[in-house]
Design a protein around this nucleic acid. Structure first.
Lengths: 242, 242
DNA sequence: CGGCGCTTTGAACTAGTTCAAAGCAAGTGG
DNA sequence: CCACTTGCTTTGAACTAGTTCAAAGCGCCG
C-alpha cells in the first residue's frame, strides 16, 4: 500500500513545524516563529513509516537526526548471541539517532511499533543553523541532554532489585511522557508487546505478565491487552521505592 | 594538604593540550595544531581532585563540560530510597557532564575514585569555537556520540541474564578503554571497590566477589585486591555470550 | 473459519540474594 | 613501631524472587 496516496497522510506530510500540533513539545519548543521557519527549511523529509518498518539499522551510515512526529518507535541493540536488547521507546517530539553523531554510524536499530512518521534533520545543516541562531543550538542541546538523562534513568531502573519496582518505574515514565504531550497521563497506550517491555526491563515475559496481573489485583492498574489505566498513581510511585 | 603546592601537580596544571600526553586520546584527537591551540585557550581550569572529592553534585547548576585528564572518576545517580546507582566509571580522555547540556543542571553526582584531574570547558565558548572551526564541532559530536553509545552498552550489559556475562563484559570494556589509552589491555587497575562494580552491574557485592574467584579458578583472570590480569581474553569474550 | 503469534497461568527449578561472620589491608593515634 | 579501629572483601549457608518449561487461552488477520 502506498501511504503517500492516503490523503490524510499526504496532508500531514506537508505540515510545517509552525502548523504542527507537536510544536511546543518538540525541538522547536521555545523558539520564535522566525527561527522555527528557518529550522523548518532544513527538515528534509517527513516520511511515514508502516508498523514494523525499520527506520535505520545498526551499522547503517547516517548523517541525520530524526524527530518523532507521530506514532511510536523502538530502538534495539543486537546482542551478539542473536538476541536483541530493547533500549527504548520513542514518543512524538523525541529525538532519534544521536548515537551516530560522532561516528556517523548507528549502533542500534530503530523500528516503528505502529504507523508513525518522523522528520529528518541533516546534521550538517542543523549545525550551520545552530551557529547562526543560538536558540536553535540551545534546543539541540536540550534534546541531547534529555536523551542522556533518559538513558541514565533507564540504567537506574535496571539497577533496581525488584521486578515490580522496574515495571512501576516504566509505567510512571510513560505516564509523564504522555503528560508532556498533553495526553491523559493516566491512560497509557501500550503499543509495545509484553516481550518488548520485558526486554526493556531486563525481565522474562512471564514476569511482566504476572506483574500486570498483580498490579491489577492490587487496584493500582486496569490492564488491557494494549493499554493500561493508572488507578492509583500515588501507590504506583511508592511501588518504585519498595 | 594543598595540592597546588605540590610541584609535580603544579607542573601538570600548566600543561597545555599540545603538551599533554593524552592529546590523541582526548577531545582534540584529529585536530590540527592550530585548532588545538584555539581549543586550549577556552579551557578554563585544570583542577586536581583528591580521592573521594566530588566534582559536581546531582542537581548542581552547570555551564561547563569536563574532560578527564588523569585518574578515574565515577558517576552516581541518587535512587530516592537513599541508595545510589553507579552509572559509570570515567577514564582519561572521556567527557563528563553532557547530561547537563540542555537543562544546565546535572542529574548525577561525579566523584573522583583516586587522585585525578579534569579540564573544564565552558559550553558557551565551546559552541562559539565550534561555529568557527568545524573540526572542533566534529570533535564534540564524537564525544557526545560515544557517550550515548557507552550508555547503550551499559543498558545492553544490564540486560544480560547471567551475572558472569555482565562481569565479563565489564572487564572487556575496561580492557578496551585501557587499550585506547595505549595502556596494557590485559593488566586492569580496579580503582573502584567491589561494591561499586556490583552496583554498576546490578548485582550484589557477594556475587561479584564470588565471580572474581570463579574466573580465577577457571584460569581466566589473576585477581588482586585492586587489580586483575586477563589471562585468557578469548574465553573471557566467549563468557559474555554464554 | 483457521492458523499464527502473543499472552496468561501453573509448577518446578535455580541463580543470585540475603544474612551472618570471619579475614584482610590500610590508616590512626598513642 | 605497634595496637587498634575501620571499612572492604571473602566465604558459607539458608532463602527467595524470578526464570524456565509446558500448556492452555485469546485475539487478530488473512
Amino acid at each position: 500500500m502506498n501511504l503517500a496516496s492516503n490523503p490524510r497522510l499526504a496532508l500531514r506530510l506537508k505540515q510545517a513545524c509552525l502548523e504542527c500540533g507537536l510544536q511546543s513539545h518538540c525541538l522547536p519548543a521555545g523558539l520564535c516563529a522566525e527561527d522555527i521557519a528557518r529550522l523548518d527549511k532544513i527538515i528534509r523529509n517527513r516520511r511515514p513509516l508502516a508498523a514494523r518498518q525499520v527506520l535505520f539499522h545498526a551499522g547503517a551510515p547516517c548523517s541525520s537526526l530524526h524527530l518523532v512526529r507521530a506514532g511510536t518507535l523502538m530502538s534495539l541493540m543486537p546482542l551478539g548471541d542473536g538476541g536483541q536488547q530493547v533500549l527504548g521507546f520513542h514518543l512524538p517530539g523525541e529525538m532519534l539517532g544521536l548515537d551516530a553523531l560522532g561516528s556517523q554510524v548507528h549502533d542500534c536499530t530503530v523500528i516503528a511499533l505502529e504507523r508513525s512518521s518522523v522528520c529528518e534533520l541533516p546534521i550538517q545543516a542543523l549545525h550551520e543553523l545552530g551557529c547562526e541562531l543560538p536558540a536553535v543550538q540551545q534546543a539541540v542541546d536540550r534534546a541531547i541532554g534529555r536523551e542522556l538523562q533518559t538513558e541514565h534513568q533507564h540504567v537506574a531502573m535496571l539497577g533496581r532489585h525488584f521486578a515490580h519496582q522496574r515495571l512501576a518505574a516504566f509505567l510512571i515514565g510513560l505516564s509523564s511522557r504522555q503528560a508532556r504531550l498533553s495526553r491523559d497521563p493516566l491512560q497509557l497506550r501500550l503499543v509495545m508487546s509484553r516481550g518488548q517491555i520485558a526486554s526493556f526491563l531486563g525481565l522474562a515475559v512471564e514476569t511482566v505478565s504476572r506483574l500486570f496481573r498483580r498490579f491489577q489485583d492490587e487496584g493500582l492498574l486496569a490492564v488491557g491487552r494494549r493499554s493500561a489505566r493508572i488507578l492509583d498513581l500515588e501507590r504506583l510511585v511508592d511501588c518504585c521505592r519498595s
